[in-house]
Simulated assay, not measured.
Amino acid sequence: MKRSAPPLGAPLDDRATNIVVSLLERFWLSRVVRADYADERATRTPHDPMALVLTRREIVARDKDVVALTFSAPDGDVLPGWQPGGHLDLHLPSGRRRQYSLCGDPQDADRYRIAVRKIPAGGGGSLEMHDLRVGDTVTVRGPRNGFPFIPYERALYIAGGIGITPILPMVRAAQRLGADWHFVYCGRSAETIPFLDEIASWDPTRVTIRLDDEHGVPTADDLLGQAPAGGAVYVCGPPPMIETVRLNFDRSGAAALHFERFSAPPVRDGTPFEIELARTGDVLDVAADESVLDALVRHRPETAYSCRQGFCGTCRVAVLAGTPDHRENRLTAEERETSMLTCVSRSLTSRLVLDL
């Protein structure tokens, strides 16, 4: 996952992100949300689990493939505060772990809201989320924030499909702050994109909706045409959309780019290599255009993973021999000497021996 940084587009690790978010909370967040987080942070960290109850389930796309889920504490107590761009780690009954962006209102201190698109051919997490019913309990960690909202005076927000979930709270915050904003929302069709009812209540002069079945696949000009000179661009959506924005950002006139992926970044300039599973002796081929995790899941469908972007750590594995090509910013230098994240990192040697 990529976030705001210097240099432009470079990822922030968890420590840098925590520093950024702490400064944002101190100097401006009180203008956006009114909750006092100090007491909660003194007794709890985002790593500590919470058991939350599903209190509301709502279909938010016309094709019925996106469900908004609202979770609350069993006793109705106040929950740890969060900022626009934040997400939750959900530990599902099956043992799967998934991250979902918070798309509710930070001022609703007693509830968290997320939205999930059903992906029948995915890893099973979305289907399990869609099967949850009001009254079900799930274990949650967080909130965390790797995509922090910064209150620019002028900003363009771009979302593709379910990528709207972290963008929604950002646009609401920009509205409250009186910022000069514009929102570009893209999707396959009006049937598939969620939250159209809410967006219909926004200032129509600040909203552009582009649908593939009506307008074709958006071009760089379609996406960045409203980029403010000297301002910022936030984008979340499928990899092709993000790549279009990244590759054309320099000529947009905007000064800062922030983006978050909802799927793995494409492998570029990769070379094939092998992984050996030390506990079984199995040797697997990793193709030039796939991740170590892809090869592992093909061989062992039960392999644990979550974000596929190198930030959650679920797929971390010990490396017994070989030299990984680390392509994440979560692990420390010391941790990188003995382990890797299989979802994004590759190999500098022809074979890696993993403790699996």
Results as ranks from 00 to 15, higher is better:
residue 312 C to T: 10
residue 149 F to L: 12
residue 285 D to R: 15
residue 326 H to A: 07
residue 102 L to G: 01
residue 116 V to L: 01
residue 335 E to Q: 15
residue 231 G to L: 03
residue 305 Y to L: 00
residue 195 F to L: 12
residue 27 F to Q: 01
residue 128 E to G: 01
residue 5 A to E: 13
residue 308 R to A: 07
residue 343 C to W: 09
residue 72 S to L: 01
residue 27 F to P: 00
residue 51 A to F: 03
residue 236 C to D: 07
residue 79 L to A: 02
residue 77 D to N: 10
residue 349 T to N: 10
residue 259 F to N: 07
residue 3 R to G: 15
residue 144 R to Q: 13
residue 123 G to C: 06
residue 124 G to S: 07
residue 289 D to F: 09
residue 303 T to R: 04
residue 59 I to S: 15
residue 113 R to Y: 02
residue 267 V to S: 08
residue 158 I to E: 02
residue 73 A to L: 08
residue 309 Q to F: 02
residue 228 P to G: 04
residue 267 V to T: 12
residue 183 F to P: 00
residue 226 Q to R: 13
residue 193 I to L: 05
residue 319 V to R: 04
residue 144 R to A: 08
residue 108 D to V: 00
residue 136 D to L: 04
residue 294 D to I: 05
residue 6 P to M: 10
residue 75 D to E: 14
residue 319 V to T: 13
residue 306 S to V: 02
residue 176 R to V: 08
residue 229 A to F: 10
residue 116 V to P: 00
residue 234 Y to G: 01
residue 177 L to H: 02
residue 285 D to V: 09
residue 222 D to H: 02
residue 303 T to Y: 06
residue 128 E to A: 03
residue 129 M to D: 04
residue 13 D to K: 00
residue 263 S to V: 05
residue 12 L to H: 04
residue 22 S to W: 14
residue 334 E to L: 01
residue 32 V to M: 08
residue 210 R to Y: 01
residue 73 A to Q: 08
residue 255 A to E: 15
residue 333 A to Y: 10
residue 141 R to K: 14
residue 201 S to G: 02
residue 225 G to N: 07
residue 29 L to I: 06
residue 196 L to R: 15
residue 121 A to K: 12
residue 276 E to N: 04
residue 348 L to V: 03
residue 214 E to S: 07
residue 113 R to H: 05
residue 216 G to L: 02
residue 314 T to W: 01
residue 323 T to E: 15
residue 84 P to E: 07
residue 202 W to V: 03
residue 96 R to Y: 09
residue 56 R to D: 14
residue 134 V to Q: 11
residue 324 P to T: 11
residue 147 F to Q: 05
residue 207 V to A: 08
residue 295 A to H: 04
residue 35 A to D: 14
residue 51 A to L: 11
residue 134 V to M: 09
residue 90 L to T: 07
residue 34 R to H: 15
residue 233 V to K: 03
residue 229 A to S: 12
residue 33 V to D: 10
residue 273 F to Q: 06
residue 353 V to E: 13
residue 32 V to A: 07
residue 46 P to D: 06
residue 275 I to P: 05
residue 91 H to K: 03
residue 290 E to V: 05
residue 192 T to G: 01
residue 187 G to R: 06
residue 164 I to N: 02
residue 15 R to W: 13
residue 179 A to G: 05
residue 232 A to T: 12
residue 75 D to S: 13
residue 67 V to A: 12
residue 167 I to F: 05
residue 174 A to Y: 04
residue 241 M to V: 14
residue 64 K to A: 14
residue 223 L to E: 04
residue 226 Q to C: 05
residue 204 P to N: 11
residue 152 Y to N: 03
residue 273 F to E: 06
residue 42 A to L: 15
residue 86 G to V: 01
residue 120 P to N: 09
residue 135 G to M: 15
residue 352 L to D: 06
residue 16 A to L: 13
residue 50 M to P: 00
residue 48 D to A: 02
residue 1 M to N: 10
residue 230 G to W: 10
residue 131 D to M: 02
residue 53 V to Q: 13
residue 310 G to L: 03
residue 223 L to D: 04
residue 101 S to M: 09
residue 230 G to N: 10
residue 8 L to M: 14
residue 302 E to I: 06
